[in-house]
Design a protein around this nucleic acid. Structure first.
Length: 380
DNA sequence: TTCTTGACGCGGACCACAGGCCTAT
DNA sequence: TCATAGGCCTGTGGTCCGCGTCAAG
């Protein structure tokens, strides 16, 4: 059992990585922190406690940090669309220069009923609003709609027109995308005490483009009033499972906040050692250029439930990836890079070489390759 | 308040070609 | 079954262009 820490310590997330449990039910992971009550509450208890009377409904709450899940969120990173506590914010956004450029805004407290019946299609308010907008915080929800939509799940409707309350992706695709593969094996058997298995049973194939390279795949979720607890859990699961590949030409579009076409001089890029390349090739068959291989893997089951251990593992992985992710372009073939740099161009395009240039380049290329330490990449 | 215009940024296409991969013989 | 030849495919970087966004008038 976790010991509560004062919300202002700011370092609560660093002591360990277990998600804080709800102070009321002691069964589910907390999702919000109520300042008035000085209590961490799960979605269900939050809805129950703060819907009890008018005074309680005015309690200001803040989301719990999505990284450590143990401290109140202090900042909303617009680039990551993540609510982070001060410690995690500093931790994550000091990892690299690109992360430092992320625009963050202070988290404003939430009041009112977050999980009540006013949320939903009937009022036109979407789950994104439920998760991301905060009463009195104008515009944030609109600005982050797209980013939020990436983090949330899709309100896919089944053939009967019913809300699936779940994923729009096919099982294998979503797993690949969410980087959940490693958790399937150990999460299948776990029983989560606060998840409703039925809520995650319906998966469907996207109606639009089946590749997430287009906007059509952006998941947008519309939740029913029932199962908000589970829904929020999905949100966390989804978020924590996100793994943004460092490929500079990754197919997904990330709201323009992060530029993947980073212009880096030839000496700045990380040249992949041959051994590394080989490993990558073995573990993941080479996908087409500019794409992330979503479909080559056999379909996996989406873990619908997470044990505390799984959650801890995910938090750890999430934070590690945040720290170590690099947006620099990865050079797989140094020899090709060397050739490309020496190749004549016309307005940036490769141009044909004359016979004389070929002879000169042959002389230079060998010299350059030797000086730069490049070698011809062996076959793999 | 709405519309127009210019500035700006981003993402993708384009090009040639070395070398690996695949298939047919 | 192995070797060889030939064609196909991939990846590489600098620049341009189209499109979207935003601010100012």
């Amino acid at each position: 059992m976790l010991k509560n820490e004062s919300p202002g310590d700011g370092g609560g997330c660093s002591s360990n990585n277990w998600a804080r449990v709800c102070d009321t039910c002691r069964a589910a992971a907390c999702t919000v922190y109520c300042r008035a009550d000085s209590a961490y509450l799960c979605a269900g208890c939050d809805a129950r406690v703060h819907a009890a009377n008018r005074v309680a409904s005015r309690h200001e709450r803040v989301w719990v940090c999505e990284a450590c899940e143990r401290a109140p969120a202090a900042f909303l990173c617009k680039a990551d669309a993540a609510s982070l506590c001060t410690a995690c914010d500093a931790d994550i956004h000091s990892a690299n220069p690109l992360a430092r450029r992320h625009q963050r805004v202070p988290i404003l407290p939430i009041s009112g009923c977050l999980y009540g019946p006013q949320v939903g299609p009937a009022t036109g308010e979407t789950t994104e609003d439920m998760f991301m907008t905060q009463e009195g915080e104008e515009g944030v929800g609109d600005e982050d709609d797209e980013a939020v939509s990436w983090l949330l799940l899709n309100p896919a409707k089944n053939s009967n027109g019913e809300n699936n309350n779940g994923f729009l992706f096919g099982g294998g695709e979503v797993d690949e995308y969410l980087d959940l593969v490693e958790y399937n094996s150990n999460s299948c058997g776990d029983q989560n005490q606060y998840s409703d298995q039925n809520n995650l049973q319906h998966y469907s194939v996207p109606h639009q483009k089946s590749c997430y390279g287009g906007d059509s795949v952006v998941p947008v979720q519309c939740a029913e009033a029932a199962g908000k607890d589970q829904l929020h859990q999905q949100y966390h699961n989804f978020h924590l499972g996100l793994e943004f590949e460092s490929s500079s030409k990754a197919a997904y579009s990330y709201n323009g906040s992060i530029s993947h076409s980073v212009s880096i001089s030839s000496m700045d890029v990380g040249v992949v050692p041959d051994s590394t390349m080989s490993d990558a090739s073995i573990s993941h068959p080479r996908p087409p250029k500019g794409t992330i291989d979503l479909f080559s893997s056999p379909p996996m089951q989406m873990p619908s439930q997470l044990s505390p251990r799984d959650r801890e593992a995910r938090v750890l992985r999430y934070r590690e990836k945040k720290k170590t992710r690099k947006f620099e372009k990865t050079i797989r073939y140094a020899s090709r890079k060397a050739y490309a740099e020496t190749r004549p161009r016309i307005k940036g395009r490769f141009a044909k070489r004359t016979d004389v240039e070929v002879e000169v380049d042959q002389l230079f290329s060998t010299t350059i390759m030797a000086e730069a330490g490049y070698r011809v990449v062996p076959s793999f």
